[in-house]
Design a protein around this nucleic acid. Structure first.
Lengths: 157, 157
DNA sequence: ATAGTTGCAAACCGTTTGCAATTTA
DNA sequence: TAAATTGCAAACGGTTTGCAACTAT
């Protein structure tokens, strides 16, 4: 993780930004919660645990900065809140999401899956794809199982 | 178009809502701008041209209602604004979008394109897909053309 | 030294809501 | 006529911004 922070530090510097303690603290929170999809407020509260002096505005500014540098992706699942998702190092494309309409869980798909579709889009629509956002809405395996259990019980009776 | 309004009216009634003049005016604006991706404010201004008494809150309430009834889809391209997109009659799935990062244009793809991907998601992630959101970010054919011109001029880089 | 950065509070802006008046089925 | 709907204005909530003090390089 230190290495990753070091590399992001270089990225900041090469764009003539500084790695302040606040920015580093924010980055660490993002790295420690890589699987989650935190809102700015979420990040703020987590950073505050270790750096209580930090201000919400700074978190917003840091997240915006990291978004510009493509370190994080800003995503929006339709509730009025932006969420911030760490990009995998070296990833050229954004990963996909599965949003469960039962329990609200958000799972990630890191495989590409869209290669063929992008090819079609580039060819048929003459659209040069730079990135994509793909989210499926449906029922996750966890909710699916409990649903199955109910069925099984019913049948057993 | 009258037929379509008639059908939506029935849909409203069957959920015990009324088709008020304001709602009808809003619907007409949506039908007349089917290809666009209007924000609530956009819709409001357009409705106002023909029904100047209408209030912004009513437009919001109507759009929310139509979203509930699956007549429109509420979408979000990452700017802080919700946009409302008329669903094709009988469509089970949401269509896709191409957002140009040069000029901001939003084009639509009505083909499904995701059948194979959904099959994989259902099989490998045990996720029952109900709907999806797919947006490509990149350069549209219009900007692509002018970009080509620049490249030719600039040459190296 | 100085350009960049911070925290605070106020401003912003899209959206929602309470309410009294009005309208629809 | 009763329940639904409207317009208005005020409230809301996430995000941005102006500014004086501060800090990393």
């Amino acid at each position: 993780m230190e290495g990753r922070i070091e590399r992001i530090k270089k990225q900041l510097h090469s764009a003539s930004y500084k790695l302040t303690p606040q920015r580093e603290a924010t980055l660490r929170v993002l790295l420690e919660n890589e699987e989650d999809h935190l809102s700015a407020e979420d990040v703020y509260l987590l950073v505050k645990e270790k750096s209580p002096e930090i201000g919400l505005a700074t978190v917003y500014r840091t997240l915006e900065l990291l978004n510009e540098l493509n370190v994080v992706d800003k995503i929006n699942f339709g509730d009025g809140v932006s969420r911030y998702d760490l990009r995998q190092e070296g990833a050229t494309h954004f990963h996909h999401h599965l949003v469960c309409i039962e329990c609200g869980a958000v799972d990630e798909i890191k495989e590409d899956l869209l290669e063929d579709v992008e090819e079609i889009v580039e060819r048929d629509w003459k659209f040069k794809v730079k990135d994509h956002r793909l989210t499926f809405h449906g029922i996750c395996y966890r909710c699916h199982e409990s649903e199955d259990d109910k069925e099984t019980k019913k049948k057993a009776d």
